[in-house]
Design a binder for these strands. Structure first.
Lengths: 343, 343
DNA sequence: GGGCCAGATGTTATCCGTAACATTGAGGCT
DNA sequence: AGCCTCAATGTTACGGATAACATCTGGCCC
């Protein structure tokens, strides 16, 4: 009943030839019936469909892709880590848009490491994806080269770039940090500290630092020493708590963390030692994670359009695959969210 | 310089033939040099490697998979939603284990819908993955049939099953709920309510309900009416808050939510109306998300081994692909985490 | 020096769908 | 009736890497 049982065959799944035999037509007719039904006589179409159901046929995308005549319908998404809710949100947005069009997301985690990103680009390219979604806009020459030569559409996300590889969706991390820093100053804080993750591995952290420093310069306020914190992975509450003393030692009256997680960790630590937040110490975060709403006082933070980034990236990818018109670049606004952790 | 420029070619990437030409050998020698270097003379190997670097060659997995002679190195993971941190954790665990072995995770979100899961199984099967990781242990006959016929190793996760498709990694949701319910009773609560997500779409929620009811029966305590809540998607704080009045109307002195998010929503709502938690009302959650540690009072909850599930699923998959010995079934313990939201 | 062996490399067939071209047959027109 | 047309279906070649088998080469032994 299955042609594949005649000869040794790796897969137990029926082939198109099996369907053809069951329907009493040739393989090509089955192919047409599946992908261009209008070209097949109604009666034949019905028989082919019955045969597909009967055999439990699942098309082999691989063969079509190899022939270069059909697409893999795979879109690769490279994010630093799925652990961080913001990137998970972006991936969700992406797959929400792509899913209904028959595209599937293949996920890779770079762990914020450039070399790992390169390795993943090469590894994923081996599967001939139809498009790439990448996080950030800085990459190694090798990565850029591979992507360019592959001719695959690429969307870079989470930042803006004057020299994008192809398409970009993001917001200005520098402006966001700038806006928050000015907000803190406007609320009367004068010694505003800045704490971010390890900036060497993360261009976005560096941009935020620039925005922070620029705002203070504009306002004539002092830039406090920036402590190093944690590992280049997922921020933890403990790291935020641990950095508190070092910052207070510099006489800070406000701390701007580039992660809500650090900020909440510091907030809890501050409360534990009886500090008045927001009176004696203002605390601000970044990302507007669920925990920012839940702590008391609520955390002042910057809402970033994580989900929206994924949605727009998906739209751009679809457009570039179907030839539809769509701008190469989209800037999405961030939003400052004042809560009670600042005056 | 590129053989692919001679004739129309979909991809701009170099082929193995291009490498062969650059190295002055045949394609087969390149193939061997890449996948079984010991069979190639050292000098040739060096030339091939130089040629690979020079041309920027990236292997085409697709071709190898089609020939049925090499593996796709794709592992498909189907989860309800990436939004929920627990499933994201599982996926991280999975890809941590598989990544170093050259396997990549292709992610699908079922949105807790059975028909969507079936559609995804078929769609992903079309890419000939080497293994499947699925969430839950109940699936449609069609899904089971497809998976079985494909002969692909399957790991079902997050629950236990007496009739697994292949391999299972999970814990007993029933026992976990049972343990929490007994704990609440032991702390002196007598009218213990249970609130979960929509159980029709989620076998795990149903199992927990069974555990809750069993514990109360054993203890001779009343089973309170179980309110319906929310949509079958990601739990929100608002939904937890909204359900509070209905539960209190039944005279509950403790509420066991099957999600920390609901529990925290209710906790904040209870505090807003001046209720004494844990004195007048005990609140317990499920999953031990970061917010459970952050709220005040800290949320009593059940820690589930989300990350560990992914790790073990990855190990089982590797074992079944390499023929290594590994049990078909793993039961991972949950942990009750008492905090201050219960007496 | 002839023959043999083993290591290194080359040749061929194959995996499964699909585009392009080929063939068949029914109906319409003069 | 003969011929043409077009819709429906069939046939052939191809994509890129790989296993199996074929060939070649140099070194060793008697």
């Amino acid at each position: 009943m299955n042609a594949s049982s005649d000869k040794p065959n790796a897969s137990a799944l029926p082939r198109m030839a099996d369907v053809a035999k069951a329907a009493g037509v040739t393989q090509m007719t089955v192919s047409r019936a599946l992908r261009d039904p209008a070209k097949v006589a109604p009666g034949t179409l019905a028989r082919v469909r019955a045969a597909v159901a009967e055999t439990g046929y699942v098309p082999n995308v691989v063969a079509g892709v190899l022939s270069g005549r059909s697409r893999s319908r795979i879109v690769t998404a490279l994010i630093p880590t799925i652990q961080h809710a913001i990137f998970a949100d972006t991936v969700t947005g992406l797959s929400e848009v792509l899913g209904p069009h028959g595209y599937h997301v293949m996920l890779g985690e770079t762990g914020y490491r450039r070399d790992e990103e390169d390795a993943l680009i090469a590894a994923f390219l081996a599967h001939r994806p139809d498009a790439f979604m990448l996080t950030g806009v800085t990459r190694s020459p090798r990565g850029r080269d591979l992507l360019r030569r592959s001719g695959v559409p690429v969307v870079e996300t989470w930042e803006l770039s004057r020299t994008p590889l192809d398409m970009v969706v993001g917001y200005s991390n520098e402006d966001a940090a700038h806006a928050m820093t000015r907000y803190l100053a406007q609320r009367g804080y004068r010694r505003i500290a800045f704490v971010s993750g390890p900036s060497r591995t993360n261009e976005r952290a560096r941009r935020r630092e620039l925005g922070y420093a620029r705002a203070l310069r504009e306002l004539g306020l002092p830039v406090l020493p920036i402590p190093t914190i944690g590992a280049p992975s997922v921020p933890t509450l403990e790291e935020g708590a641990a950095v508190l003393d070092a910052v207070l030692a510099h006489g800070a009256d406000a701390i701007f963390f580039t992660s809500d997680v650090y900020a909440v960790g510091a907030l809890l630590a501050a409360q534990a030692r009886g500090l008045d937040v927001p009176g004696a110490l203002g605390i601000a975060g970044f990302h507007d994670l669920p925990i920012a709403r839940v702590v008391s006082p609520g955390l002042t933070t910057v809402h970033v359009p994580a989900h929206e980034i994924g949605v727009l990236a998906g739209r751009k990818i679809l457009a570039s695959l179907t030839g539809a018109a769509e701008p190469k670049k989209s800037v999405i606004p961030f939003t400052l969210v004042p809560r009670q952790s600042t005056r």
